[in-house]
Nucleic acid binder design. Sequence first.
DNA 1: CATTACCTGCAA
DNA 2: TTGCAGGTAATG
Length: 277
Amino acid sequence: MPELPEVEHAARSLGEQIVGRTIVAVTRLDWERMVETPAVDQFLDLIQGRVVRAAGRRAKWIVLTLDDGWSLALHLRMSGSLTVHGPAAEPDAYTHLVLLLDDGRQVFFHDTRKFGRARLLDAAGLAALDSAHGVEPLTDAFTPELLAALLRRYNARIKPLLLNGRLIAGIGNIYADEALWNAQIHPLRQSASLSDEEVARLHSGIRLALLQGLEHGGSTLRDYRNGYGVAGSNQNHFKVYGRAGAPCPRCGTPIEKIVVAQRGTHLCPYCQPIAVD
DNA sequence: CATTACCTGCAA
DNA sequence: TTGCAGGTAATG
């Protein structure tokens, strides 16, 4: 799933349901590689009895603030979802982690592809996670000037640069393509070659794509669900992603699909011309 | 920078 | 049967 809008909804909807509750125990962990830190036995021990104080997001991580300085960071990667269920619910074969709450409800971490990850972090671990990621693109810190500086300093093809979470957090394959279409910039453009006007368009194009995703509850291609089990609808509003051959909403030219940095990449060849860098 | 790996299901 | 999928880390 999950890029910034999906993770944001996942975190919020989880928080609405479980903030204030205590994690009584982990009642299932059948894919131990999901737990990255600390060692599994420590993880199981330390998480017991922790109160969930808050739920938030950093980059594509859902961060549950617990008591005693601990945080539970959860990453959904490609196919994960976190949903809250009643006491009688039975996890299926793809539910690899189950947290039992003090009111009997359960949090299911469901993940078909088993790429999802969990980390129980102390304050230092949380700070390390934070500093491993770039600016949050929906905050005031993300200015056109900052974007311009990043594009110049890390000159590279613009699409892979947008996907690099150490520079800008939360943009994945869907929203990178949508943002570049919004900005009318070809994904292969060298980032340092963008004019000030193009940088300004990209800045607002990124925000617009992410805000539109948020507005529609995120995008669900297959697996994504929020904490209530509800799919997003932003996939019905894509301008280019997954629309190869369909008409560009701006000019009617058929959308093209190419490969950039090993990722399927969608663009309008008329609105997003290749520039001679 | 490109390639491979990690997993599984599904569409072509 | 093959290739592809919302992510990211590791390896040449």
